[in-house]
Design a binder for these strands. Structure first.
Lengths: 237, 237
DNA sequence: CGGACCATTGATAATTGTCAAAATTCGTGG
DNA sequence: CCACGAATTTTGACAATTATCAATGGTCCG
C-alpha cells in the first residue's frame, strides 16, 4: 500500500469530483474538502480493512474494485458487497464505535481516497446534503441486501446465478452484436462465495446454462449473455 | 385501520418523545414536529404497506410489532425485518422514488405515527442530527442483514436457529431463575420464513434442542432458554 | 366443547455439498 | 511467442441436509 498525504498530485482530478456523496457541493466547497483527503493505492489482493479492526476513516474508491467479506470460524467466506468506483465503505466507523463488520480486499489494483472521522463528522453538520446522499446510497445497498436475503431464503441456485449475471451485466457489461459481454469481477470461487453455494455448484450451473445456449464463457474472466431475456424470465421479471 | 390527524390526543405522550431518531432535539423542536404527525392504529394481521406500492410517508412504531416481508411469485414469504417500538420504515420513499421494497404486516395490534415526505424532508436539512440518527439506525440494520446473509450463505440451519433464539432473547426475553423466557413474536411458520427454511425443519430443530435440554417450549408463543451458553457456543461466540 | 388453525412427526425425494481426479486457464520466464 | 508449472475450474460419484407430502396431534378461542 502506498499513501500520499493531501491532494497535491491530483490537480483537479481528485476523487471527490467523481464521488456521488459530494455531488451536491460547489467547487469551492469541494476544494476545501479535497485538502482533508488522503490518497492511497493498493495492489490486487491486498487487504484494506480487516473484519473486527477499528478504523477511523471513510474510504472512497477512485478506481478499481474490491470485495467486502466476512469469514466464519471454519474459514468459509461470504462476500457481502462488491465495491467499484464511487462506492465508499467504513461509514459505520464514523457514526458508531463498532469495529469493521467485514474485511475489504482489492480485486484489482485500487486507488482510494480516505477521510478521517474527525474531518468527516463536521461535514455532515455543515452540509446536510452529504448525509442525504449517504442515506440514499445506504438505502440502495439495503435494497440489494434484502434482495440477496430473499434470494438465499426462498430461491433456488438457478435463480441466484441468473440474478448475479443480470446484476453484473448492468455493472460490468457492454453490448456487442452477439449479446452482452460481462467482464466478471469475481472468479468462480468468488461467485460461489457471493451466492452462498459451493464452487462446484457454480461450475455446474454455468455449464448447464452454456449447454442451453443462454451464455457463452469466453474464459474465466468474461462471459457473454447470449439470451438475457431467458435469464430475466428465469427470475420472473 | 383508524387514523387521527395531528396530535391532540397525545398530551405530551406523542411517539416522538420515545423515538431515537428525534432524541437529539429539544422540547420546543419536538413540539413543532409533533404537530406534523398523524397517528394510526392497526389490528393484528392488517397490512400497513404493500410491497411495490408508492408511499409518501415515514412510519414510526409507537407500540406493538410488525414484520417486513417480500413475496416471490410462487407465494413464498421471506421476512426481512421485525419492527418493534421505536423502529421506523418507509424512509426509502423519502429519498428515492422507489416503491416499497417490502410489505409490512402487524404482528400484534399496532399504534404508529406517520410523517409525510413533504413535512419530513425539510427536517433533514434543518436538523442534521436527524439524518445522523437515521444513518446510525440504518447501519445497525445493515449489520443485521449482513449477518443474516452470512448465516444463510455459509451456516447450517442449527446455527441459524440458535442465532434467532439469541436475537429474540435480547429483544423479547426476560430473565427468570430457570432461564431466559422469550415471548416469541413469530409463529413457527414465521420463524421458518425469517430463516429461509421450511416450517417442518424449524419444528425438528427446536424439537432436537428441547430433547438436548437447551430450551423448553411452553406453548407456541413462548420458549425458555435453559442453556443460553450452549447456544452461544453453537454460534461460535 | 368444538372447530379452525398451527405444530409435529414420519417417509421419501430433490438439491446441493463434499471429496477426488482430470482438464483447462493463467502468468511467468525463457 | 511459446512452454511450463501453478492455480483455477470442471466433472463425476457419493453423502448429507433439507424440502416436500401426508397424516397425526395440539392449542387456542369463541
Amino acid at each position: 500500500m502506498i499513501a500520499k498525504k493531501g491532494c497535491e498530485h491530483c490537480q483537479g482530478d481528485s476523487c471527490i469530483y467523481k464521488v456521488p456523496i459530494f455531488s451536491s457541493l460547489n467547487n469551492e466547497e469541494l476544494m476545501n474538502i479535497a485538502r482533508l483527503i488522503d490518497h492511497k493505492q493498493y495492489k490486487k489482493g491486498e487487504i484494506i480493512i480487516h473484519e473486527g479492526e477499528k478504523s477511523n476513516a471513510i474510504t472512497i474508491i477512485r478506481s478499481g474494485s474490491a470485495k467486502a467479506c466476512r469469514y466464519s470460524p471454519d474459514g468459509k467466506e461470504q462476500i457481502v458487497y462488491i465495491f467499484s468506483e464511487g462506492d465508499f465503505f467504513g461509514e459505520q466507523n464514523l457514526l458508531t464505535e463498532r469495529t469493521a463488520s467485514y474485511s475489504v480486499e482489492a480485486l484489482t489494483d485500487l486507488r482510494v481516497c480516505t477521510l478521517s472521522k474527525n474531518d468527516f463528522q463536521p461535514l455532515l453538520y455543515k452540509y446536510p446534503d452529504i448525509s442525504i446522499k449517504i442515506l440514499t446510497e445506504l438505502s440502495e445497498r439495503m435494497y440489494r441486501l434484502e434482495n440477496a436475503m430473499q434470494g438465499m431464503g426462498v430461491r433456488n441456485v438457478d435463480y441466484r446465478v441468473a440474478s448475479l449475471l443480470l446484476e453484473f451485466a448492468v455493472k460490468y457489461g457492454s453490448k456487442t452484436n452477439e449479446g452482452i459481454i460481462i467482464q466478471m469481477p469475481l472468479s468462480r470461487e468468488g461467485i460461489a462465495s457471493y451466492l452462498g453455494v459451493a464452487r462446484e455448484t457454480v461450475s455446474r450451473k454455468l455449464g448447464q446454462m452454456e449447454k442451453d445456449g443462454i451464455i457463452r464463457s469466453l474464459n474465466n474472466k468474461s462471459i457473454i449473455l447470449l439470451e438475457p431475456e431467458a435469464l430475466k424470465e428465469a427470475i420472473g421479471a
